[in-house]
Computed example of a mutant assay.
Amino acid sequence: MHDNQPRTITPDALPEVITRYLTAHHSHDTATAIAVFTDDATVIDDGNTYQGTAAIERWLDRTATEFTYTIHLAGAQQTDPAHYIATHHLEGNFPGGTVDLRYQFTLNNDFIEHLAIEP
């Protein structure tokens, strides 16, 4: 029986492609981060949609410089073999100062096809 409810997994059980993206994103390594997306990938962040690698690359470059913050991987979940959630706790100089964000990944053949980031 599949009820599509996410189940908790350890952060080190996240697929390697997600870990590679998160590490690259946190270290502002745009070239490595963009390489894990499919050509027609979609990212949804802060109410905006970024379609395709060129738009995602611009988003990555902007988010790397917009605010200063620390980020901690607080938890991970898996819904099915293609859907994962990585919850991050951020503290920094952005409005509100602290937030927990859910990075919701959809994978396709070891690439990220869709990423939605929301509280």
Rank of each mutant, 00 (worst) to 15 (best):
L115T: 00
A13M: 11
L60P: 02
P6A: 14
N4P: 00
E91D: 10
P15I: 00
A13F: 04
Q78T: 08
I18S: 01
E16A: 09
F37T: 01
A76P: 03
D45M: 02
H83Q: 10
A55D: 04
M1Q: 12
T42A: 11
I117Q: 07
H88S: 03
N108P: 00
F37G: 05
F94Q: 11
R62Q: 15
Y103F: 09
P6G: 11
T98H: 13
I71L: 15
Q77F: 15
Q77L: 09
D40R: 07
T10Q: 12
M1S: 15
F111Y: 10
L90S: 03
V99N: 01
E66T: 14
T53W: 02
Q51S: 10
D40A: 08
E118M: 04
T79I: 14
H114G: 04
L90E: 06
D61S: 09
V99P: 00
I85S: 02
H114A: 06
A82N: 13
S27A: 12
V43P: 01
L115Y: 01
H114C: 01
F37R: 00
A86W: 00
A54L: 13
I85A: 12
E113G: 05
Q51M: 12
D40M: 11
T8F: 14
D12G: 08
T32C: 06
A33L: 14
P15T: 06
F67D: 10
A86P: 05
A13S: 11
I56V: 07
R20V: 15
G92Q: 04
P119L: 10
T79R: 08
D3P: 01
H26K: 08
L60C: 11
H2Y: 15
A13H: 06
T65Q: 13
P15Y: 06
N93T: 11
D12P: 01
H89K: 06
I56E: 01
L115N: 00
T8L: 13
P15F: 01
Q104L: 03
N108R: 10
T70E: 15
S27L: 12
T79L: 03
H72G: 08
T68L: 13
P81I: 08
H114L: 07
V36W: 04
R102Q: 14
H28I: 04
F37D: 00
A74P: 02
P15S: 06
T8V: 12
A76Y: 03
L101C: 03
A82L: 05
P119R: 08
A116F: 02
I9T: 05
